[in-house]
């Protein structure tokens, strides 16, 4: 999505109309991003609100050599991570190294059929916080485990373990859904 330069300039000047136009253009997509990182819609809206305040506050720092949508998206993801860290600052989770799965969850003979997006979103939101964060950063943002360990303050092995468990969980849930679907037909 491209955005009119005038709107950005208006936002830099602090004009409310321009800010509203920018918000209307990007808010639905960014709420979709936030919802993947949060446990429910209300929390995602809190993150979205906080994220857009940062966008408007720091919009003059945006360098036009990159994608504006990507810049906003990074702010939203960072805000979601900050929110996660704040909310779970006493959430210590020690992963038993023995539970690390050596199998590669991303490969195999299994073919996954498309699933309703709302259901898939719901499944992601049901994941434990840590699993959800790692899954999002790895799958959607393209970070490596080493980077994720630095972002979330966990070990690389924990990152791998949580990604593995998240995939396993989603896989199981989708299989259950498939069974139900087959029963219906």
């Amino acid at each position: 999505m491209t955005v009119d330069e005038k709107i950005i300039q208006g936002c830099i000047a602090g004009k409310r109309r321009a800010q509203n136009q920018l918000y209307k253009a990007f808010a639905p997509g960014m709420l979709g991003v936030c919802m993947r990182y949060c446990m429910n819609r209300a929390e995602a809206e809190d993150v979205l609100q906080e994220g857009f305040v940062k966008v408007f506050r720091y919009i003059e720092n945006f360098r036009s050599d990159g994608s504006f949508e990507g810049w906003i998206r990074r702010i939203m993801v960072n805000t979601a991570i900050t929110n996660y860290n704040k909310r779970s600052k006493v959430h210590h989770e020690e992963i038993n190294e023995n539970t690390l799965s050596s199998e590669d969850e991303t490969s195999g003979d299994k073919v996954y059929l498309p699933v309703d997006r709302e259901i898939l979103m719901r499944l992601i939101q049901q994941l434990p916080d840590g699993y959800r964060m790692v899954l999002n950063l790895y799958v959607f943002e393209g970070y490596k485990h080493r980077e994720i360990s630095g972002i979330l303050g966990i070990s690389e092995n924990t990152s791998k373990s949580q990604l593995s468990k998240a995939r396993k969980y989603l896989k199981n849930e989708m299989e259950k859904l498939e069974k139900v679907k087959n029963l219906q037909y």
Binding site: T106, Y112, P114, R167
Partner: peptide
């Protein structure tokens, strides 16, 4: 279909 779950999610 998708060969892995990551592709499906993305």
């Amino acid at each position: 279909g998708f060969n892995n779950i990551d592709d499906l999610l993305r």
